[in-house]
Design a protein around this nucleic acid. Structure first.
Lengths: 98, 98, 98, 98
DNA sequence: CCCGGCGTTAATGCAC
DNA sequence: GTGCATTAACGCCGGG
């Protein structure tokens, strides 16, 4: 079993097991983990931005619950439009007509 | 700290740590776990029943995807009716009108 | 709108209600849909029961998150769990986490 | 229906469009909603990026479930994790699982 | 300041 | 084996 396969099969693995630069699989693993973590940093920042917008709206006297509802309904409407074209066929299928 | 509190605070606990019948907290823990598990047995059975209904419908020539869509829409319609009365007020709130 | 007509929330499902086959299909469809819905009523009740058990356990001082993990561990196959843990250790080593 | 009119999918939001205050409120509302939606567009893109990273890792032979757990472990506070594990062990002992 | 409710998101199981 | 539908977990938010 190669080093590459070790990460899956359960063999021993470390980032610096006496070798000079660690093995390739560990390096790739680290790369994947760090890419995910970098994305999550940005996600966290965006979540805070959104919270800030809602807080600002609340400060301006709007009902945040209602605001959230509107946003979600606009999203739902967009989704509905995208799928509306297939609904009639779907119902015909439901009746075994096609 | 009593045995009762041990389950929370991190003290040592076992179902028969030398005593004759185990302690009360362990007994209650077991009770909760088993109640959950009994419920989950029934849930699993119901999920299989539902699968069976869909399989039967499919055998009768119906499109199961369409069928599921219909069921979910009926559910959504029921929910919509339940919440529809509050939507207008919600929007008025959104506009800061009330 | 009567119950008969309220199959999908508006209008008749069958587009050719004068024919026998169309009505028969609609009738069978209705039967399947209602069977599913009856099952889902019970499923909903069971979900609430489970929530109630966890709430009760919480009221008794147990950590519900830990409780849920315990339940899931009892479900999981011991061998699978051990294998998964070995993969985790492998990754942790590769990242220098241990 | 123009973009201007399509605030919530049908009809004007403002019930008194002749007044200044109603229009102003609707305008501010629109602004908040659009700011939120712009953020959500980016959030959606980031979620897809993350999925892509995991898919790529899976393609490279890594166990994505383990990968996700690693990421979450790196996020979690070590002390909290240890405390939670001790609670788990407590419960496991109480149930005779270990 | 804690609590329960809710909305979102990840995980599991299923059908194809 | 891949995509999807359901289900459970998580974190945020508003109220008491």
């Amino acid at each position: 079993m190669s080093d590459e396969e070790d990460l899956i099969g359960g063999g021993d693995l470390s980032s610096d097991e006496g070798s000079n630069s660690g093995n390739a699989a560990a390096s790739r693993l680290r790369s994947f983990v760090e890419r995910v973590e970098r994305i999550e940093v940005v996600q966290k920042a965006l979540a805070e931005d959104k919270k800030e917008v809602y807080a600002e709206a609340k400060g301006a006297g709007f009902d945040t619950k209602a605001l959230r509802k509107i946003v979600s309904e606009r999203k739902a409407n967009a989704d509905d439009l995208a799928e509306f074209e297939s609904i009639l066929d779907l119902y015909r299928h439901a009746l075994g007509m096609i």
